[in-house]
């Protein structure tokens, strides 16, 4: 592995109880960071070094709760260096059948959650004159996806958020980027009927699904000084599914 050393840095990962978030959490811990995991309920993994790990139960779509979480992080660890807005849900449905709840839930968690945590974290990072904000978008935010007008809109919105925030925060040495995964094997995609999973794999040029580790690798790269001149950018990790 390319060695990434994040010793002394403090990270927050939302949606860290499972899937991509859980692997990002593990990799950040391995790289030496202290990590605060946010989710609706705790994940199954345990045995993390309690000096460098904290779980806070919170709903990312709650703006005020996000501010409180960041305050708790600052109280416990004294700083905040890396924020990974990963929490996401999908409520697939064709547009003409989509309920207002399907729409609102996805927008509030996937886009609202990213905004809430970017906003809360950026205040702390501004004081430090350093920080990294990373959002998990999706190739479906770069292209449209059948059955995902809500998800595509939210994930595209995340990209707009990243670019505008990058422009605002660059002068404080805060970098803001996104990773756009393609088809990754997680609990979210496990629920898909096999026919659709196979179709997704067929779309890739590498003819395989991605793993959460592939996304975590890109996140670690963006969280480290290896990417110190990259901001406002979206890195696709999709096996060539959307070229």
């Amino acid at each position: 592995m390319i060695q990434v050393d994040l010793t002394g840095q403090v990270a927050v990962v939302t949606g860290a109880a499972q899937g991509i978030g859980e692997v990002i959490l593990s990799r950040l811990l391995e790289a030496g960071a202290s990590v605060v995991a946010i989710d609706l309920k705790a994940g199954d993994k345990c045995g993390f070094d309690q000096n460098r790990y904290l779980f806070i139960q919170s709903d990312v779509s709650d703006f005020d709760a996000a501010k409180e979480v960041v305050n708790r992080v600052l109280e416990r660890f004294g700083r905040l260096d890396i924020l990974v807005a990963n929490a996401g849900i999908n409520r697939d449905q064709v547009l003409w059948k989509m309920t207002k709840e399907n729409w609102a839930d996805v927008i509030n968690v996937d886009l609202g959650g990213a905004f809430n945590y970017f906003a809360a974290a950026s205040s702390a990072m501004k004081q430090q004159n350093s920080g990294k904000l990373i959002a998990i978008s999706s190739i479906n935010g770069l292209r449209g996806k059948f059955g995902q007008t809500n998800y595509s809109a939210a994930k595209a919105g995340v990209i707009g958020l990243v670019k505008a925030a990058a422009k605002e925060l660059g002068k404080y040495s805060i970098r803001v980027n996104a990773v756009a995964p393609g088809f990754i094997l997680t609990e979210m995609t496990d629920k898909m009927p096999e026919k659709y999973r196979n179709m997704a794999i067929e779309e890739t040029v590498l003819k395989k699904a991605g793993k959460p580790e592939d996304i975590a690798n890109a996140v670690l790269f963006l969280a480290s000084d290896l990417s110190s001149h990259i901001t406002g950018e979206v890195i696709k990790v999709d096996g060539g599914q959307y070229i």
Binding site: G182, L206, A218, K236, D238, I243
Partner: peptide, 9 residues
């Protein structure tokens, strides 16, 4: 190999 799932980007 950290970028094993990145191509065409």
């Amino acid at each position: 190999e950290e970028a094993n799932y990145i191509t065409g980007d």
